[in-house]
Structures are given as structure tokens and as C-alpha cells.
Simulated scan of single mutants.
Amino acid sequence: MGVLVTGATGFIGGRLTPALAGAGYDIRALVRDADGYDPDTSVDVAEGDLLDPASLAGVFDGIDTAYYLVHSMRAGDDFAERDRRAARNFAAAADAAGVDRVIYLGGLGEEGTDLSDHLESRREVEAVLAGAAFDLTTLRAAVVVGAGSASFELVFQLVDRLPVMITPKWVQTPCQPIAVADVIAYLRGVLETPATAGNTYEIGGPDVLSYKSMLERTATLAGQRLLLVPVPVLTPTLSTYWVDLVTDVPRSVAHPLIHGLKHPVVVTDDRIQDLVDVSLTPFDDAAANALRERGVAADE
């Protein structure tokens, strides 16, 4: 089976590509700069840019299933427009080549009109892909816990640099984080489960936590003391200012994420568990693994 991974150099794609190659799949990785990419020798590397349709010529040839793991938040405030164009170009090229199936990792959260810009863009990309001829499988996840995750990097840098935090009330918002290893397991699992084609599933770890609890648990694991003081007058917008001052996470990434924190992100449909068997990792174990990978000794 020919499998294409877009976003192969990213946080998820960089882990999924070797996992699939090691499982014996014929993998092609789409990257914008092949010179800066050094995969397993079994991986076929294709150079192209989803924002440039002409560069995609031949990329989808011989591909049965493609993973869409691309987003443009690091590109700046116009990330939604870039994501929209990239998804349209991808869908057109995949349809033209006769790709049977696409697997997309989107965002978990409530339906409705009051979505954060980040989640609204994720849903728009999902709609673009769903309108193509191929069968789309969508996995929706909230905070992915792992070294290199923008969300977890925010959490770690805050507890590492701010022993006392004046926080907005959204720190009490419930969230269902998931370990990056479990996300990879689900992404591979749906590929190997044809019944998941054409469906949307929510994925999350075994723990539903407030952001306050995630901050406190991460601080404990990192050997840090932390005092949180939630106040009702501090809004997510104001919070972005001190996040910019304290962390080095790009504001184009941090701001959309923070504005989305007021919405609960909890799995309400666990059908995926009946189709794909994944032994879910508790938050503390996932965070400890992420800290060790980041070079921080985790207290267990």
C-alpha cells in the first residue's frame, strides 16, 4: 500500500512516518525542503509545497492513502487562509491521482459558531477535505502531550518560568489531553481498520483535567513549585500578553491556542475505542515522557 504523509517534518508527522515505515508500509514523505530532511532509507521523499499546486505534480502517483497533517499557525495571522488554500490544493491533487482515502488529524471541541480561530480553521480544513472524492477519516484531538507539542510547550514554559501565576478563570475549563504515542497509535490504527473510512472520531487520553490541574501536575513532575491564583477579570486576550513575555512560543501559535482555552475539549463520542485498540497513557506518564525527551528530569 502506497502511503503519503504530508507534514512529515512536523510534530506528529515526524513520529508517524518512521512508525509506518517500520511497520512495512511504502511511505512517501512530502516536505518543502528535501535537503533538510533525513528519514529512514526506506522512505521515498517528495519535495513540494501544498500552497503551490504545480509543485505537487507526481507526488500522489501510486498513493492509496494520504495523511493530512499540515497547518500554518507558525506562518502568522493569515494562517486560516493559508490552511484553506493548502487543503484545496491537496484535495484537488489527491482526487486527480485517484487517491482512495485520506486521514486527517483535526481539533476536538464543541460544534457551533463561537469557535476559536484555531478550531474554526481546523473545521474548515476538515470540510474542504470532506468535499473531495476520496473517503475521509478524521480524528479530533485536544492537547497532544509530547516534546515538541506547541500546547505542551506552553504549559511547560509557564510552570518553568512563573512560580506564581495570576490566571484567568479558563484555567478551570475541562480538557482531555492525549499522549502523542497514543495519537500515533490511532493514526496507524485507522489505516489498518477499513471500517473507519468515511467517519469522524474523537480521541483523548484516560484523564479529563482542568488546565489548572495540567499546570500543577507538570510543575510537580518538573520539580517546580507553583501557585495559581485565578481571577475573573483576567481574559484570554490579556493572558496572551504575559505569555508573550514569559515564553518563546511564537505568538502566531500561542494566541490562537490561548483564545481556544475557554471552550471545553472533552470526548463525547468514544466509538473509536470499539474499532481501534489503543492502551491509553495517563497524563502524568505522558507528561513525564515529554519532559524526559525535552531533557528535564521528571519526578515520578
Rank of each mutant, 00 (worst) to 15 (best):
G7I: 02
G10A: 11
F11C: 04
G13C: 09
G22L: 07
I27N: 02
L30D: 09
D33F: 06
D52K: 13
D52G: 06
A57I: 02
F60S: 06
D61R: 10
I63T: 14
S72R: 13
M73R: 12
A80E: 13
A80Y: 02
D83Q: 11
A86R: 07
F90N: 09
F90I: 03
F90M: 05
A92F: 00
A93Y: 05
D95P: 00
G98I: 05
V99T: 13
I103M: 03
L105G: 03
L108T: 00
L115M: 12
D117Y: 03
H118I: 02
E126H: 14
L129A: 08
L136M: 05
V145R: 00
A147S: 14
V159M: 05
V164R: 14
M165R: 08
T167R: 12
P168K: 10
V171F: 12
P174A: 11
A179W: 01
V180D: 06
A185R: 14
G189V: 07
L191D: 00
E202A: 01
I203M: 07
Y211Q: 10
K212Q: 15
M214Q: 10
M214F: 03
L221I: 09
L226F: 00
V229Y: 11
V229P: 00
T237D: 12
S239I: 10
V253T: 12
A254N: 04
A254P: 00
A254E: 08
L257M: 15
I258C: 03
G260W: 01
P264E: 10
V265H: 10
V265E: 11
D270H: 12
R271L: 04
R271C: 01
Q273G: 11
L275Q: 14
V278T: 08
L280M: 08
P282E: 01
D285A: 15
A288E: 03
V296R: 14
